[in-house]
Design a protein around this nucleic acid. Structure first.
Lengths: 207, 207
DNA sequence: TCATATTTGCGCACTTTCGCGATAACTACA
DNA sequence: TGTAGTTATCGCGAAAGTGCGCAAATATGA
């Protein structure tokens, strides 16, 4: 604890402070659809979150929250926006620092997933958090091949395209344009897919 | 104060909470250059900021801070990022919710302005905050004519172009392309500039 | 061996975007 | 009236982007 005192002899903790929560939109693709992890508590559906603890970075709080609630590790959550409505939480003044992270489907084996296109009526402002997260993810998928690493280590162009179609159905270009945009940003493995009828597809890795 | 108690009989305020500050990059264009307002305190240069007070929204805290320190009113500050390093502040644990706002030059008549291209060594992480703000402003100026409203109520295309050149010298297209991009998004006043030699330029307003 | 299915590459037509030279229009000034 | 200076428009060539039909290549399966 700092020894600092201001000109009134007060420490920082002598002044009013809000509670700070982190809430996270955890996104994945399952069955060809973009989905979000939702938890239920006290009868209300919401995005997973927690209060920030002493000595913790925001990203660490996000990780702790998701580890405890869904056994998810190795995340790189990103900040979206701070939600600060005075009365957004009945328990008291709480700022929510919304985050997002996208993970491969298998990571969320035990989580309750809902397709983002049909999610509504989440508690607090979590519908708004989800919208920001989806918009952000889609913008990223328009610029780069699988930036969130949802595919396995190696994949074909068709695998990639199907993933992008799931993430951003309305923003994906047609066949050749998609390939011209994405292929230069991939690392060719030099190997071919096996076990398929027809000319085998080339395998790639993300760079 | 909420009557809420958790399963341990504790209120939210019984738990650890960080201090929350708002710091703002206030940007403007002066003498053809993008500048930022800098304040000096305890011998260190920094962006203006304040701690969040009870019952206050983040944007209100930003407005209070800038009103008190520079008599600036009528702002619409936007969030940038939350800086959360554990020891970013000697006085104790402080989260900084960085904001940005761009205002016409005249609003900052009494402020100390520095060209963003030469600002460095601000206290805390304020160099990082400034970089985010400049990047955000430039991205916006690539998409729309004077989105921050730095020009007077009416202006010519040349006025607009000179402003955009000041904000984003490296991102502005050539003559006709700039006009094709921006003119459709402006409202023609139907009036012409007066007092100039040569064909008078048309006057526009932002939409 | 042949059929089927798939991937890949490519040529090409079309569309869109970009930048600029040239010119007309129009004002203030001499 | 003529000149200088500025704005605005336009035609046009070049560049970039898009999408697709088609054929070659290549694997698996019968």
């Amino acid at each position: 604890m700092s020894a600092y005192r201001d000109s009134h002899g007060k420490r920082l903790i002598d002044y009013w402070r809000p509670s700070v929560a982190v809430d996270t939109a955890v996104l994945t693709v399952r069955d060809g659809r973009l989905c979000v992890a939702v938890v239920e508590k006290d009868g209300a559906r919401r995005l997973p979150g927690t209060f920030l603890h002493e000595g913790e970075l925001l990203a660490d709080a996000v990780r702790r929250s998701l580890d405890l609630k869904a056994g998810i590790r190795g995340l790189a959550p990103r900040q979206l926006h701070v939600f600060d409505a005075i009365d957004r939480d009945d328990r008291g003044r709480v700022l929510s620092i919304a985050h997002m992270v996208a993970v491969p489907d298998a990571v969320l084996a035990d989580a309750r997933l809902e397709p983002v296109s049909s999610v509504k009526d989440l508690k607090y402002d979590h519908d708004d958090i989800l919208k920001l997260a989806v918009d952000r993810l889609r913008a990223e998928y328009r610029e780069a091949p699988d930036p969130a690493g949802l595919l396995p280590d190696t994949f074909t162009l068709l695998d990639l395209r199907r993933l992008h179609e799931a993430v951003d159905p309305d923003g994906i270009p047609r066949r050749d344009t998609f390939r011209r945009l994405m292929e230069p940003k991939l690392a060719a493995t030099g190997e071919l897919e096996r076990g398929t009828v027809g000319k085998p597809a080339r395998l790639f890795r993300r760079r």
